[in-house]
Write a protein that binds this DNA or RNA. Structure first.
Length: 461
DNA sequence: TGAAATGTTGGGGCG
DNA sequence: ACGCCCCAACATTTC
């Protein structure tokens, strides 16, 4: 009987999995395999929390597989070697995997495909990179036309059901799923948790999503990014469910929310396309003339940013949220990215790497796209002169300072009027609170108005 | 998916 | 009653 390998990479789900379905379609037995790749685990972009989430996801996937008569085989090593070894041990003849388009994934898969029968299936995105292009075949570099073209393509097929049973040869040796030290992540890994979160979001959060997602003091975002990152939820499942919600929505809020959320999913596909067509953005600016920006790259400024002690409450709250939980509100990501690149004049790649090291949802394409957008170096980038004012952003999107107080306990007692500008607190107010600028909370490490002039000059050059 | 600088308008105080 | 000034509110331009 034919045996094939389902090589799991970032598609930790049984439902709507085209690679798994293709492996099943062979009609024989299927070996679900995950390979811990030292090159990825040891990369400077690897993150402890993301790894913990992945490991939890593998444990959950293994449990789901047991329910349908199968189990996950875990190996560690160079993928091509491990695949070859497993094929030798079991007589497996074909390998099925979901295509991944990051530069590393492409070179890895090309190497495997050179030696072994690897079949790559779509599923990471609804429309494969290269499918959404201009009439002349060239890629889009601006989001809005990309999203229009994306929406004009014929609707993708409905999500596939999970297999009801999976036959796997018994007793294949593999590494035990590691037990990592407990890390605190506000996300439960696994396909079921992903489904629950999606249902919850579409039944409630979506109504106010278009507006509330901007507020850092609310839980107005979908909270689905880690699941999409590891394919515990497929983009196609998310989009189809969103379409259903939109079609059934009676209130304009839900329709608007569904439309806005769909656009966020298209941003994800956009950046996957950008990295696919322009792999060089991983190393440098998409707008190559901006590779000449003379960054200040002050190590102490960078540390203050990373550790959440810049003296700007919203920036500090956001960075502490990131390092404490492995997640950061999207607006806070834009604010902190703008602050690092524009106010501190630190190379966006430093921030990109730091985010990858801490984000549970860290994805090479989306993270790079977001950072280059903020730095103004990317495709469809924010113009270089678009400099976020951290105080105004705080006042607008954390109006009562709840987000700041949650993550910066030193400021808990500061009155609303000064929560985003503690340095403006009158002496008698500060004294009454036992608040000492520069002691109980840092003084701002830059003067925003001066920093703004500085970065405008640096980019003009 | 900005913010600051600059320009315009119009109401009200005042001589 | 009228012109002048101030300035808030809003609009436009610029970075």
């Amino acid at each position: 009987m034919a045996i094939s390998i389902w090589w799991v990479r970032r598609d930790l789900r049984l439902a709507d999995n085209q690679a798994l379905s293709a492996a099943c379609a062979e009609g024989g037995q299927v070996i679900p395999l995950f390979i811990l790749d030292p090159r990825l685990l040891g990369s400077q972009y690897a993150g402890e929390k993301r790894q913990a989430f992945l490991i939890d996801g593998l444990r959950s996937l293994d449990a789901d597989l047991h329910r349908i008569g199968s189990y996950l085989v875990l190996r560690r090593g160079e993928p091509a070697e491990e695949l070859m070894r497993l094929m030798g041990e079991t007589g497996a003849g074909e390998i099925y995997a979901e295509a991944d388009h990051s530069p590393y994934a492409r070179s890895r898969d090309a190497r495997v495909a050179n030696q072994l029968p690897l079949h790559l299936l779509p599923g990471l995105t609804l429309h494969a990179p290269g499918a959404v292009v201009k009439a002349d075949g060239s890629p889009y570099t601006v989001f809005t036309p990309f999203s229009k073209a994306w929406k004009n393509l014929s609707a993708p097929a409905s999500p596939l059901a999970a297999p009801g049973r999976l036959s796997t040869p018994p007793g294949i040796p593999g590494e035990e799923i590691p037990h990592l030290p407990e890390v605190s992540i506000p996300f439960t890994a696994g396909e079921q948790a992903a489904c629950r979160r999606l249902e919850e979001f579409l039944s409630a959060g979506i109504q106010t999503y278009a507006v509330d997602r901007n507020y850092m003091d609310l839980e107005g975002t979908s909270g689905l990014s880690p699941y999409l990152r590891f394919g515990m939820l497929s983009a196609r499942q998310a989009v189809h469910a969103t379409w259903r919600t939109e079609a059934n929505a009676l209130d304009p809020g839900s329709r608007q929310g569904a439309e806005t959320w769909l656009n966020e999913l298209i941003w994800r596909e956009f950046y996957i396309n950008v990295l696919f067509h322009f792999p060089r953005v991983r190393r440098g600016a998409f707008r190559q003339e901006l590779n000449g920006v003379r960054w200040l790259n002050n190590e102490e400024d960078f540390s203050a940013w990373a550790e959440g002690r810049t003296g700007f409450p919203v920036v500090d709250a956001a960075m502490r949220q990131l390092t404490a939980t492995g997640w950061m509100h999207n607006r806070a990501r834009m604010i902190t990215a703008s602050f690092l690149t524009k106010d501190l004049l630190v190379d966006w790649r430093w921030g990109e790497r730091f985010f990858m090291q801490h984000l549970v949802d860290g994805d090479p394409a989306a993270n790079n796209g977001g950072w280059q957008w903020s730095a103004g170096t990317g495709t469809d980038a924010a113009p270089y002169f678009r400099v976020f004012n951290p105080v105004l952003q705080g006042k607008k999107f954390d109006p009562r300072g709840a987000y700041v107080r949650r993550w910066v306990p030193e400021l808990v007692k500061v009155p609303d009027a000064y929560i985003h500008t503690p340095w403006e607190m009158p002496v008698e107010v500060a004294q009454a609170l036992g608040f000492k600028l520069g002691e109980t909370y840092p003084a701002p490490i830059v003067d925003h108005a001066l920093a703004r002039q500085r970065v405008l000059a640096a980019y003009r050059v």
